[in-house]
Amino acid sequence: MTHQHASRIVIRRTRGDIPTPVVGHDRRWALIRTLLHDTTLPTATRLAGLLLRLYAQPVSRTARLRPDQVTRTGDTVHLAHGPQPSALPGPLAELVVTLAERRHGHGTLGRTPDHPWLIPGRDAGQPISASALPLALNQLGIRARPARNTTLIELTAELPPSVVARLLGLNINSAERWSTEAAGQATYAIDLARRPLRQ
C-alpha cells in the first residue's frame, strides 16, 4: 500500500479469545468422570485435564505449578492457582497430593524432591513442557482451547464475574466478557428451544 502496489486492504479484528465452544455439557462431564476415576492414565495428564475442565486453567499454567501452591488444612487440600486458594474436591485433592509427594524428575536418576515444580520435566530443574500436556490430552479427545472456553462459559453462567475472577485468577474485565458471552449463549439456546418443530 505504501508503494502503491496494492489497493486498500481491510483486515477484520477478531473478538479475542471468546470463540463459541464446541464441547457439549454431557461430553464435558463424561470426560471429567474419566479423568477423576481412570487410574490407568498418567497422574499429570489427569490433573491437567481436570484443572482445565473444572477451573478453566490453561495447560501452560498447570505445567508450571509449584509444590508450595499446594497446602493442606486438616483434611482439606487447597491449590493456589489464583489469588485465592481453592479447596479441591476429594479425588482431585488426592491427585495433587500424589504429585506433590511422589514427584521426581526425568533428567536425573532416582527421586529428586528438591526441584521447584509439581510436575517436573525431562530436563533437570525444569517443569514439564507445556506442549507435552496438550498432546497427552489430545489423545483423550480433549482439545485445550475449546475445553477451556466451555468451562469459562459454564462457570460465568452460574457465578458472578467477580467470583469467577477471584476463583480462577482471571482479570475482572475478562470475566465480565465471558459472562456476556455466557448470557448470549443462554439467549440463543432459549430461542432455539422455542422455535416450532418443522413437519
Rank of each mutant, 00 (worst) to 15 (best):
R111E: 12
G110L: 09
P113T: 15
T76H: 13
H104N: 07
I153S: 15
G169P: 02
H106W: 02
A175S: 04
A147T: 01
E158S: 12
T187N: 11
T62I: 10
P134L: 14
L118K: 05
T98A: 12
W178D: 08
R177W: 00
R103C: 06
L92W: 05
P120L: 07
A175I: 04
N149W: 06
R177I: 09
P58S: 14
T98R: 10
L79E: 09
V59G: 00
R66I: 02
P83S: 15
Q126V: 04
A136C: 07
A182D: 06
P58W: 05
L170S: 01
Q57M: 10
A189G: 05
H106A: 07
T150C: 12
A186Y: 11
D68I: 10
E176H: 01
L65D: 10
G121H: 04
L192Y: 13
P160A: 13
Y188F: 14
A144T: 15
A80T: 02
P146C: 00
P67W: 08
L192T: 09
L152A: 03
W117Y: 00
G82Q: 00
P134Q: 14
N149R: 08
L95M: 11
P120D: 05
L52P: 13
N173C: 04
L51N: 08
P127Y: 13
G184L: 01
S162G: 11
G105N: 00
N138Q: 14
T112P: 02
R143W: 15
R143G: 05
Y188G: 11
P58K: 10
P58H: 11
T71W: 09
R166K: 09
I190C: 11
G125R: 07
L109A: 03
A186F: 02
V77R: 03
L192K: 12
R111S: 15
V77N: 00
H115T: 07
A186D: 15
L65Y: 04
V163A: 15
N138D: 14
R61N: 12
G169Q: 06
G90L: 08
S179N: 12
L92T: 04
T187C: 06
N149Y: 02
L159N: 11
P89H: 03
N173S: 13
R122G: 08
E176Y: 07
Q57S: 10
L168R: 02
L92R: 00
A100F: 00
D114G: 02
T108W: 11
T76E: 08
G121S: 08
R66C: 03
S60L: 03
L79K: 02
R166D: 14
A144V: 12
H115M: 05
N171F: 03
P83R: 15
R122S: 12
S129F: 04
L118S: 10
I142F: 09
G141I: 04
